[in-house]
């Protein structure tokens, strides 16, 4: 079981511009069941990424309760569960090869060395980088770097997978094929995923549920359930309909 339970999560940022503190998250509550794919959707600056930072253990200055698989999230090194994270930028270590970058995550996660090569070859194969294991990141295109970063996240066999606008830096055609790739892998592994995006169509294509965020202060405005079967098809008219509905809600409400 790797469910996520966020209860009354609030976060205040203090800075020179806001000496009294800026309320980034205002009592967010969100429950994600095991094996569920949830998208956090909203414009930038509404605290979506902050939620991921708290869940990953990077940000520990918050109020409220955050549990993953029943355990309270505290210092990242003491996590009883493994987190896979795909950032907006690939965040690969440029001095390591593709293989070295995945090994870095495997070693950090305490995966026994005997399993490394099987896992690395398996995951590189699944993301289509079988022949690129010994290549350095700068020799790869942006899409291939992000594939490496996805392979790295899945290779540690995480309990939960956090994705922070992972395809927003790619061109739309690459992003499309990456979404299909991700869904394919996800159908196989059924990780619990929280996926941050500002793209309504992407959210509808990927998610079981969508939590729409609103800014100032960051809060969840509305939740949508995406009742579409899997595997999903880009051309599905129901997907388009759903996406229009969500887009109307997001733009309408936020413009008011």
């Amino acid at each position: 079981m790797a469910d996520i339970a966020v209860h009354d999560l609030s976060k205040v940022y203090r800075s020179k511009a806001h000496p009294d503190g800026l309320l980034a998250l205002d009592r967010i509550s969100l429950a994600v069941a095991d094996h569920q794919f949830v998208c956090l959707l909203g414009p930038s600056g509404c605290g979506k990424s902050t939620v991921l930072n708290v869940l990953s253990g990077l940000d520990q200055h918050y109020t409220g309760e955050v549990r993953v698989a029943g355990a309270v999230v505290s210092r990242s090194n003491a996590h009883p569960f493994r987190v896979g994270y795909v950032f907006q930028e690939p965040r690969l270590l440029p001095w390591l090869t593709v293989r070295g970058n995945i090994e870095f995550a495997l070693e950090s996660a305490g995966i026994p060395k005997s399993e490394w090569s099987e896992r690395i070859n398996g995951w590189l194969g699944r993301v289509g980088l079988r022949d690129f294991a010994e290549v350095h990141p700068h020799e790869l295109s942006g899409g291939m770097q992000q594939r490496t970063s996805i392979a790295r996240a899945f290779a540690i066999d995480p309990e939960i997978l956090l994705m922070d606008e992972p395809f927003s830096g790619l061109d739309e055609l690459t992003a499309r094929s990456m979404r299909e790739l991700l869904l394919g892998i996800w159908l196989e592994t059924r990780k619990t995923v929280i996926f941050v995006t500002h793209n309504c169509f992407e959210a509808c294509f990927l998610a079981d549920r969508i939590a729409v965020f609103a800014p100032r202060p960051g809060r969840i405005k509305q939740e949508f359930t995406v009742d579409l079967g899997r595997p999903r098809d880009y051309e599905d008219p129901r997907l388009f309909e759903m996406s229009v509905k969500v887009t109307h809600f997001v733009t309408g409400k936020l413009a008011a």
Binding site: S56, G57, L58, S76, N77, H79, R82, V83, Y85, F87, E89, R91, L93, F104, A105, E107, S108, A109, G110, R152, I156, L162
Partner: peptide, 15 residues
């Protein structure tokens, strides 16, 4: 950002 990446993947302080 790379240090944050390492922390998320639970890389120990010395490493």
């Amino acid at each position: 950002r790379l240090i944050d990446m390492a922390r998320v993947f639970r890389c120990s302080g010395t490493r």
